[in-house]
Amino acid sequence: MSQEAARGASVAVGDLNLEGAEKTASVIQEAGGVAIAVGGDAADAAVAGAAALIRRELGSVAILVNKAGVTACQPLVSMGEDAWDRMIGINLKGPFLVTRELVPDDTPLARQGPVDIGAAAAHLPMKRAGRPEDVAYAVAYLASEEAGYVTGQTLGTNGGRHLV
């Protein structure tokens, strides 16, 4: 996200862990960018309040990155319903709620819709852990004019961990 801030974008850092969001926002601010931290669960309907705070503090939304996500570290056959519901809530309901609240029909967008990317993951074939800037570079590209003809894509920023 610091890449977008360096290009003049104001950044709202949302996280279930408010302290972590505050640390990230602080790094952006220390680098001269504009950032706020917003705590909350992306899979909760209370995201509407977070969206109102973001608009009040930063204005309209031009770039949206849905990057909250979890995976189950167990076989499907042994997964309980609570774990399944949490995974579906974060991975499916969360992006729906966040997008619905932050990108209503009347919001001007730089392109046709939000950017939805996977989070960088550690312990990869790239022989290093993913860094926040790995995701930020991907976001910067997808939000740039250079990607103006790219639509409806998911860019896996996972260092090759998930190869098709």
Results as ranks from 00 to 15, higher is better:
V47P: 03
V47R: 12
V47F: 14
V47M: 15
V47D: 03
V47G: 09
A48R: 03
G49H: 06
G49Q: 13
G49C: 04
G49V: 02
G49P: 04
G49E: 14
G49I: 04
A50R: 02
A50T: 03
A51I: 15
A51R: 09
A51S: 15
A51V: 13
A52R: 15
A52K: 15
A52Q: 12
L53S: 11
L53W: 06
L53V: 10
L53E: 14
L53F: 11
I54L: 01
I54W: 07
I54V: 11
I54Y: 12
I54H: 00
R55W: 05
R55T: 08
R56D: 15
R56W: 15
R56N: 15
R56V: 10
E57D: 06
E57Y: 03
E57C: 14
E57L: 05
E57P: 01
E57A: 10
E57T: 10
L58V: 14
L58S: 02
L58Y: 05
L58E: 00
G59F: 09
G59V: 00
G59C: 06
G59H: 09
G59S: 09
G59Y: 04
G59K: 10
S60K: 13
S60Q: 08
S60C: 08
S60R: 15
V61I: 14
A62E: 13
A62P: 05
I63L: 11
I63N: 08
I63G: 06
I63S: 06
I63C: 04
I63D: 01
I63R: 02
I63Q: 05
L64T: 08
L64S: 07
L64G: 02
L64H: 08
L64Q: 11
L64A: 02
V65K: 00
V65Q: 07
V65F: 12
V65D: 13
V65P: 03
N66R: 08
N66I: 06
N66A: 07
N66F: 12
K67H: 13
K67D: 08
K67R: 11
K67E: 09
K67Y: 11
K67F: 07
A68H: 08
A68V: 15
A68W: 06
G69C: 12
G69P: 06
G69V: 00
G69Q: 10
G69I: 05
V70P: 00
V70R: 05
V70L: 14
V70S: 01
V70E: 04
V70G: 02
T71C: 01
T71W: 06
T71N: 02
A72C: 04
A72N: 12
A72H: 09
A72V: 03
A72D: 05
A72G: 05
C73T: 08
C73G: 04
Q74P: 00
P75W: 05
P75G: 07
P75F: 03
L76I: 03
L76R: 03
L76M: 08
L76F: 13
V77F: 00
V77K: 03
V77N: 10
V77D: 04
V77S: 07
V77Y: 01
S78G: 04
S78W: 09
S78N: 02
M79C: 11
M79K: 06
M79T: 06
M79N: 02
M79H: 02
G80P: 01
G80D: 10
G80K: 00
G80Q: 04
E81K: 02
E81C: 01
E81T: 12
E81P: 00
E81F: 11
